[in-house]
Amino acid sequence: MKLYESETDKGLKPTGVYVRSGTTSAPASEDAIRMMIKMTDGDSFEANRSLVQELTFNRLDEELKKRGLEFTEVQMKNLGILSSDDIYTNMGLLVSDQCKHSIKFAIFQGTDKLVFKDRKELTGSIFVQLTDAYKTIDFYNGTKATFHDLLRTDERDYPEDAIREALLNAIVHRDYSFSGSTFINLYSDRLEIISLGGLVSGLSLEAAMMGASQPRNEKLASLFYRMKLIEAYGTGISKIISCYKGLSVQPKFENVEGAFRVILPNTHAQQLSVEDQKYLQILRLFENQKEITRSDVEEALGIGTTHAINMLKEMLYKDLISKVGNGRLTRYMAK
C-alpha cells in the first residue's frame, strides 16, 4: 500500500491523499489520514505545531493568577504551549482564547430529541467553555425540597460533583484531532455528555471503571492537575458513581469507536412502570406549566371529560399527582 498526492496537470484525480492497493487507488478518508499520521508521527497532537500562530491567553492567565501560578515564557514551554523554537503548539491553541473546538448544548422537551427547548454553542477558551457549560447546566438543574419534621433539605436533580467530573473528563480526555464538538444533551430524565475519541487504544471500559487511566492529552491533564481542577488521574468515573450511591438510578458509561458517553440520570425523574406509561403524556404537561386542569388533559389526549376524570383519579390514587382546590377551581400538580 502506498500514499501519494495526485497531480492535476497530468489529467489524474484532483489533488488529495489516496490509498493505493495493487493496481487501484481510492481517496483516503479524513479518519484514515488521521490514523496514518498517528502511525508515522505518533499520537502527539498536543506537541504538533499549531496552524494558528496569532494566539492570546487572557483567560488562561486569569485562571492561573487566581491560583497563584506564574505564566511566563518559561512556564509556557514547560506546559508545552510553546515549543523550544518558540512556535505555538496545538496544546497552545487548545488553551488559548482562539480555541477552535466548541461545546454544543441542547435542552430537549421530554425524553427524546423531537422538540428543542433551547440550544447554544459554547466557544472560546476551553476554560470559558467549561465555566459556561457548568453554569448552563446549573441553571436547568432543578431543586427538590424534602421535609423531615421541621428540617428542610434541598436536593438537586443532578449531583453537582457528578456534573463537574463528567464535564472535566469530557474536556481533558477527548480526542482533539477530531474537529467536531463535544455534545451536552439535557432531557427531562437524564443529562448526556458525549466526547469524541472514546477511550485510548488498549484501555477497555471495564478497566476505566476499575480506575485505570491513560490520559490522551497528557499536557492538558497535567495543566488541569496543577490548576487543581482534577485531583488525580483515574478518579473521575468512581467519583461520579459515588454521587449516586444508594439511589434507585445509576449513571451509565458507554464507549464505542470514536466516542464516549456519560449518562447522568435525573434523581427526581419519575420512574414509571410499563403499566403506568399511559400517564406519560399527562405528566409531560408539567414540563411547561406548574399546574394543569382536566381540560388540559382532554385537549392533550383528545379524550372526553369522563375519561379524563378517571385518568386523573387513577393518577391521584397512584400518588403521581396531587389535587389543589375543588369544583371548577380544581387543579393538579406533579408530585
Rank of each mutant, 00 (worst) to 15 (best):
residue 250 Q to A: 08
residue 254 E to A: 06
residue 248 S to K: 11
residue 229 L to N: 07
residue 157 D to R: 00
residue 316 L to Y: 02
residue 215 P to H: 03
residue 96 S to R: 03
residue 11 G to M: 09
residue 55 L to V: 13
residue 327 G to T: 11
residue 97 D to H: 08
residue 259 A to C: 04
residue 272 L to I: 06
residue 103 I to A: 06
residue 53 Q to V: 09
residue 328 R to T: 09
residue 328 R to L: 06
residue 42 G to K: 03
residue 297 V to Q: 05
residue 1 M to R: 03
residue 264 L to R: 08
residue 77 K to E: 10
residue 289 Q to D: 09
residue 65 K to Y: 07
residue 125 S to L: 10
residue 327 G to V: 11
residue 70 E to D: 14
residue 84 S to N: 10
residue 275 E to C: 02
residue 282 I to P: 03
residue 103 I to S: 11
residue 306 T to M: 13
residue 18 Y to G: 06
residue 37 I to E: 06
residue 320 L to P: 03
residue 94 L to R: 01
residue 331 R to F: 09
residue 332 Y to I: 03
residue 37 I to D: 02
residue 177 S to T: 01
residue 39 M to D: 11
residue 71 F to V: 03
residue 278 K to Y: 01
residue 58 N to V: 08
residue 246 G to Y: 09
residue 185 N to S: 14
residue 288 N to Y: 10
residue 246 G to N: 13
residue 12 L to N: 13
residue 186 L to A: 01
residue 237 I to L: 09
residue 103 I to F: 12
residue 211 G to V: 00
residue 39 M to P: 01
residue 173 H to V: 00
residue 165 E to M: 14
residue 10 K to N: 13
residue 72 T to Q: 05
residue 69 L to K: 14
residue 289 Q to V: 06
residue 112 D to P: 11
residue 88 Y to S: 08
residue 180 G to Q: 10
residue 216 R to K: 09
residue 242 S to M: 07
residue 152 R to T: 05
residue 16 G to R: 05
residue 289 Q to I: 05
residue 212 A to G: 02
residue 202 G to Q: 10
residue 222 S to K: 08
residue 114 L to F: 13
residue 282 I to S: 04
residue 201 S to E: 15
residue 218 E to F: 02
residue 205 L to N: 04
residue 134 Y to V: 15
residue 114 L to N: 15
residue 275 E to T: 12
residue 1 M to E: 07
residue 223 L to Y: 04
residue 225 Y to N: 15
residue 226 R to G: 07
residue 17 V to D: 05
residue 64 L to C: 10
residue 52 V to K: 13
residue 181 S to D: 11
residue 300 A to V: 14
residue 100 K to F: 00
residue 311 M to R: 15
residue 213 S to P: 00
residue 90 N to W: 02
residue 78 N to A: 13
residue 252 K to R: 07
residue 302 G to T: 03
residue 11 G to V: 11
residue 289 Q to N: 14
residue 328 R to A: 11
residue 321 I to K: 09
residue 49 R to K: 12
residue 131 T to H: 15
residue 48 N to E: 12
residue 147 F to C: 08
residue 118 D to S: 14
residue 297 V to E: 04
residue 46 E to Q: 00
residue 246 G to K: 10
residue 121 E to C: 10
residue 128 V to Q: 08
residue 262 V to M: 15
residue 62 E to G: 08
residue 279 Y to L: 04
residue 2 K to T: 10
residue 205 L to C: 10
residue 158 Y to L: 14
residue 107 I to R: 12
residue 119 R to P: 00
residue 182 T to P: 02
residue 239 K to R: 12
residue 56 T to P: 06
residue 162 A to I: 02
residue 103 I to K: 12
residue 305 T to E: 14
residue 95 V to H: 02
residue 279 Y to D: 11
residue 333 M to N: 07
residue 315 M to Y: 06
residue 28 A to Q: 12
residue 321 I to S: 03
residue 324 V to N: 07
residue 63 E to M: 09
residue 156 R to F: 03
residue 228 K to V: 11
residue 175 D to M: 00
residue 153 T to Y: 10
residue 307 H to C: 02
residue 81 I to N: 04
residue 178 F to R: 00
residue 35 M to R: 15
residue 166 A to S: 14
residue 230 I to M: 05
residue 48 N to R: 13
residue 293 T to M: 05
residue 325 G to W: 01
residue 99 C to Q: 03
residue 68 G to Y: 01
residue 292 I to P: 04
residue 114 L to S: 15
residue 146 T to I: 15
residue 251 P to C: 07
residue 233 Y to A: 13
